[in-house]
Amino acid sequence: MARAQELAMRDYVQEVSALTMRWVHRLRREKFSMLFTLVQPMLFWLIFFGSLFQRAANSEVMQAPNYMSFLAAGVVVMTVLNNGLSGGVDLLFDKENGFLERLLATPIHRSSVIISRFIFVMTITSLQILVILTVAYFFGVHPATGLLGIAVVLLIGMLFGIGLTALSMAMAFTVKSHGDFFSVLGFLSLPLIFLSSALVPLSAMPTWMSMLARFNPMTWTIDAVRPLILSGWSQALPRIGMVVMLLLVFDALCLYGSTRAFRRAIG
């Protein structure tokens, strides 16, 4: 029995890593578009938006030495948001052109397709976060909690990213066409950014906006990442504890939804 399980496990690892490598191969081929669409916009936010508001932003309101160091946490989590929400796109194309059916006609565990996507999106997101933090470092943003803090940032980012990617996949398996998918995506992403503490703290917002922002998982995540960069462990730890619990619930809900959507889609 143990032997059979071992074999099943080996098969599972083999299929998941092959499917993950497929995404890596594709990334290598599409590297230009990947570079320009994923890494750059986020750096633009950090560098241009950060510099533009360097003087306009009041550092007392921001509770930060300068605007860019305040914004860094926001840009990190925006990266997670964008990657997560578009994480299902490739599965959507697979569904539309029949590749998904080809995969599902093979003796693989149904979850492998999805797990491979999680692994890939999380890895790419983590790499991008490291790029952003490196660039920020050269602009004088030195994370207060050091390398260990950065590791925790990545962990929190993944925790949030898993839920978002699951949400994106649920949408991919539900929508009728990819046009629908992209219009929902375009509609969601900006309000989620503006109605969060990514660009200004809640205390600086009009009341109605800060009310809404309080319910935004973006806000929870940013509020845990920001003290890791700005202040230090003593302020960060309670928030981390809080966000981990909230995100676990968020992830559970999103995963439940995507599993249902997936089951329905594959009949």
């Binding site: 083999q14 092959a18 499917l19 497929r22 594709r26 029949g98 059916e101 080809r102 093979t106």
Partner: peptide, 28 residues
């Protein structure tokens, strides 16, 4: 079973050989 779908269910960004290598792993 083996399956040859109706749509050109092909990943444009993979080579022919990569398609077959992928399937080899999926059939363990």
């Amino acid at each position: 079973i083996g399956y040859v779908p109706q749509e050109r269910a092909i990943d444009r960004f993979l080579t022919g050989r990569e398609h077959l290598l992928l399937l080899g792993s999926l059939y363990h």
